[in-house]
Write a protein that binds this DNA or RNA. Structure first.
Length: 476
RNA sequence: GCAGGGCUGGCAGAGUAGUUGAUGCGAUGGUCUGCAAAACCAUUUUACAGGGGUGCAAAUCCCUUGCCCUGCUCCA
């Protein structure tokens, strides 16, 4: 049974999708006006892993993630660069996918863009006006009337009075109430605009997510996710718009991830303390970044330090070594009919590790504890491959199965195949190892070292152990 | 002010009442060993911001103080 922490109820809840076996999920994506940073990476990796886990558990996941390509930031940036917002969006979406792919984050099932849904948004705004939840101001703006929606504040647990007290926008004469938010903004000079029943203008920020999520996932869907900073006002407003429009519950489970901080401060574009994904990937592998992220539970903040990332890098490398070594035994045909006590213990450990992993992930996707299971079995495998008299092919295949599952869910080491040797190479290396062992027996260190050094130069590392010589292919 | 999150070993980071200070990194010692590399083992353990309270029992629940962060404005 999977449990998730739901921001709406502030409780751990049993997870059950509306349609058995299928999950409809909307993830709030990015405004495509600049390059993505580590905060986005954390967010993407966290939910990508959750998605992968749900798929692993047999769910079919429809994962919709939007691109905000029309809003204030887009317009300002496009003007600065002297391009249209469409051109700006194109470029940044391309960069975004590049970052996404490198981090091995699965692409969304659907990635709708706000600009292509303006007519649909207009229809929704129109309905909200007709239902009396929205009003047209004299200047052509359209606002959502928060006082009409009695449940306003239910996600962020804010009372309207408190919101009001700290709303800065008290001067706007077009609003009936300071906390009302824009569904449609009348055109200003130098801004792109679209025709509407209320004159030229453009949509407000929040409506796109309501419109697009319900278009592709239905009026009520399972999961809605995003960063914690979106809880208010963005997600609060989405709920208000959507539920007043349909009269039905909007998203059922609200998931929010914690921030990446730098020197105890949130990493954000407005503070300017950002590290871009592409720049961190110049010094660290995607696997290191993923692992670094997953070592902390997704709802906890991560105070980013290079030291921490380095630690994760070492950890990732060690784990990688285990897996690649294990893979090198995968196709060894020697069927061992005898099952020793050590084999049995290993098989049991493998089962235990899988169960522990699942148990951890079931509990609100506790990747920290899940990884603990991975590290423990990794240690057992290392021990087994080096110490046991005869390696049992069944043990190897079960272990490989397990690590394949881990890799799939955690999104780690997706490029591992390039480090696995084809049989021809394998035979060749094994021959050289045999020869070298003969030289070693006769204490011909010069020749035995020459073999080892030459192999090392071509990226093959030998490792002498009492029971056997192990080898692996490394990068470069 | 209101709402929420945090304060655990040298570092990172799980754990929300009671058979583990999980796990990772680091450090020290060891095993292995021609050398190298890797791996494994042991130690690094009477921790849980301070104070108070309720429990047979609290890091874990309640109260309180301190410090930090976040949202209430665009933001993953």
């Amino acid at each position: 049974m999977i449990k998730v922490y739901n921001t709406l109820t502030r409780k751990l809840e049993e997870f059950n999708p509306i349609n058995k076996g299928k999950i409809h999920w909307y993830h709030c994506g990015v405004t495509v006006y600049s390059r993505s940073h580590l905060g986005h990476a954390r967010n993407l990796i966290a939910f990508d892993t959750i998605r992968r886990y749900l798929e692993y558990r047999g769910y079919e996941v429809r994962y919709v993630q939007n691109f905000t390509d029309v809003d204030d930031k887009m317009i300002v940036r496009a003007n600065e660069e002297g391009v249209s917002i469409i051109e700006l969006a194109e470029k940044n979406i391309q960069d975004y996918y590049e970052d996404l792919d490198r981090l091995n984050v699965k692409r969304p099932s659907l990635a709708p863009r706000a600009l292509l849904h303006i007519n649909h948004m207009i229809k929704d705004i129109q309905s909200l006006i007709e239902k009396g939840y929205a009003y047209v101001a004299d200047n052509g703006d359209v606002y959502f009337d928060v006082r009409k929606w009695k449940e306003y504040g239910k996600l962020s647990k804010q009372k309207l009075e408190n919101i009001l007290e700290h709303t800065e926008d008290t001067e706007n004469p077009n609003k009936r109430f300071p906390a009302d938010f824009a569904l449609w903004k009348a055109k200003k000079e130098g801004e792109p605009s679209w025709p509407s029943p209320w004159g030229e203008g453009r949509p407000g920020w929040h409506i796109e997510c309501s419109t697009m999520s319900m278009t592709y996932l239905g009026e009520t869907f399972d999961i809605h996710s995003g960063g914690q900073d979106l809880i208010f006002p963005h997600h609060e407003n989405e709920i208000a718009q959507s539920e007043s429009l349909t009269g039905k519950p909007f998203a059922r489970y609200w998931l929010h991830n914690g921030f990446v901080k730098i020197d105890a401060e949130k990493m954000s574009k407005s503070i300017g303390n950002i590290i871009n994904i592409n720049s961190i990937l110049k010094s660290y592998s995607p696997d290191s970044v993923r692992l670094y992220t997953l070592l902390t539970h997704y709802r906890q903040p991560i105070d980013f330090t290079e030291e921490g990332l380095k630690q994760a890098e070492v950890t990732a490398e060690r784990l990688f070594n285990t897996i690649v070594l294990l893979k090198s035994f995968a196709n060894d045909e020697e069927e061992s009919s005898v099952i020793t006590e050590e084999d049995k213990t290993m098989i049991q450990s493998i089962e235990d590790a899988r169960n522990k992993f699942i148990e951890a992930m079931d509990e609100d996707f506790n990747t920290s504890n899940a990884l603990a299971a991975v590290f423990e079995i990794s240690k057992d495998v290392n021990d087994y491959l080096r110490k046991v008299e005869k390696i049992n092919s069944m043990v190897v295949s079960k272990a490989n199965e397990l690590f394949d599952e881990f890799r799939l869910v955690l999104g780690l080491f997706s490029d591992i195949d390039q480090y696995i040797s084809i049989d021809k190479v394998k035979n060749l290396v094994n021959l050289l190892i045999d020869l070298r062992q003969e030289f070693r027996k006769s204490k011909n260190w010069e020749k035995s070292d020459r073999i080892r050094d030459t192999l090392k130069d071509s990226g093959i590392i030998l490792e002498d152990n009492p029971k056997r010589v192990l080898w692996k292919i490394v990068a470069k």
